[in-house]
Structures are given as structure tokens and as C-alpha cells.
């Protein structure tokens, strides 16, 4: 058992919350993990990524080598393409179709989407709509976690246990909203035809 993940997005989109849930679920299973993240200046609206690797055996490198990511999980479409070199032959690209436009030269959406669609295994999720349906557009990260859950090799209950832990200090309503966001993401990925 070994998984290499890249989590991608823009600073402030909550990829570290996704990482928190997976890290702790992995630890709960008694596996090992390494999870490299971006702090400091780049978090101010810049491109951010997290390399997350886990296994029931030892893990050496904190970084995912070229061509070995099992999953690239992106909360933003342009950001997904930045890590395409990491994708393995069977790699899954799980991408939000909701753009985050804070740069003047943001490409045409059609161009981004057509490039994502070239990847043999991909899932495109309208994370904004689903997050709003769950209760808040801020839950897009957890929608995307739900969308990827089938490919993580971790039981859903375990992921949900740590979603609860991640949000419990914000109150029960926020916890429930994120659980719903997870479910909506998971179901949408299930329905998506490549």
C-alpha cells in the first residue's frame, strides 16, 4: 500500500485542511506519511501545493517524484495543470472546474478544460455549486476531498472522523455542512463519466 498525492490550489483555498484530514486518517490506520506544504509569503493568493505521501512502509522523500502521483487533487482548474508532470501512468486528476481568477493573464477556461480532458483519468467537479448546496462556498475543499475519496484507499468513516475534528471548534453546524459537502463531492465524482 502506497499512495502519492499532490494537493493543489491557491493560498487560502484550504488545501491544508484536506491534508489535515488525510494525515490523521492515515496515522489512525497505523501507516506512515510525509506531507510537505507551503508557508509564508506564497500563501498570500499565490499558487500553493502540498505533496502528501503515505504507505504502510517507510517513506523517504517528502516530495513526490516526477511521474509517480496516484492522485492530483486540485481545488482550482489552472492549478491542476501545474503539477501534471507528477502524474503517474494510471494517475487520477481530480479537479474543481471553478476558477479562482486573481491574475490578469488567466487563460481561457475552454483551453484549461480541454487540456484537463486530455488526461486519460480525470474527474471534473463543479465544486462551487456543490459547496453552496452544502451550505457555504468555503467548503469547496471538502467537496473536492469527497470527490477524491474513492481513490485514496482510506475508509470514508475515517475521513469523516477527521473532518469532524478539523471543524469541531467552529461548531456542529459547520461540521455537518462539511460532511454534506464531502457526500456531494463523492456522489458527483461517482456520476462523472470520463
Amino acid at each position: 500500500m502506497k499512495k502519492d498525492l499532490i494537493l493543489a490550489g491557491v493560498g487560502g483555498q484550504g488545501i491544508l485542511s484536506i491534508a489535515f484530514v488525510i494525515d490523521n486518517a492515515v496515522l489512525d490506520k497505523g501507516w506512515k506519511f510525509r506531507q510537505a506544504e507551503v508557508h509564508g509569503m506564497a500563501q498570500r493568493g499565490g499558487a500553493v501545493q502540498s505533496h502528501l505521501r503515505y504507505s504502510d512502509k517507510n517513506i523517504w522523500s517528502d516530495l513526490v517524484p516526477v511521474g509517480s502521483a496516484d492522485v492530483v487533487l486540485a481545488v482550482e482548474p489552472l492549478e491542476s495543470l501545474r503539477y501534471i508532470d507528477c502524474l503517474s501512468e494510471d494517475g487520477m486528476m481530480i479537479v474543481s472546474s471553478t476558477p479562482y481568477i486573481n491574475i490578469p493573464d488567466y487563460p481561457e477556461m475552454d483551453e484549461i478544460i480541454s487540456n484537463i480532458k486530455k488526461i486519460p483519468k480525470h474527474v471534473l467537479i463543479d465544486s462551487e455549486e456543490l459547496a453552496k448546496e452544502a451550505g457555504s462556498s468555503r467548503a469547496q475543499n471538502i467537496v473536492m476531498l469527497g470527490a477524491s475519496s474513492k481513490w485514496l484507499g482510506i475508509e470514508e468513516e475515517l475521513l469523516k472522523k477527521y473532518i469532524t475534528m478539523a471543524f469541531e471548534r467552529k461548531g456542529e453546524a459547520i461540521v455537518q455542512m462539511n460532511h454534506k459537502a464531502f457526500d456531494l463531492g463523492r456522489d458527483a465524482a461517482e456520476k462523472y463519466k470520463v
Binding site: V66, G67, L78, L81, R82, I84, D85, C86, L87, S88, E89, G91, I103, D105, Y106, P107, E111, I112, N115, K118, I119, P120
Partner: peptide, 11 residues
């Protein structure tokens, strides 16, 4: 070598 590649320049 990367396994997949794209034909666009990313800003």
C-alpha cells in the same frame, strides 16, 4: 520524463 504533457503555457 513526465508521462502526460499539455500544450499550453501556464501563467
Amino acid at each position: 520524463k513526465p508521462i502526460v504533457s499539455i500544450d499550453m503555457k501556464l501563467p
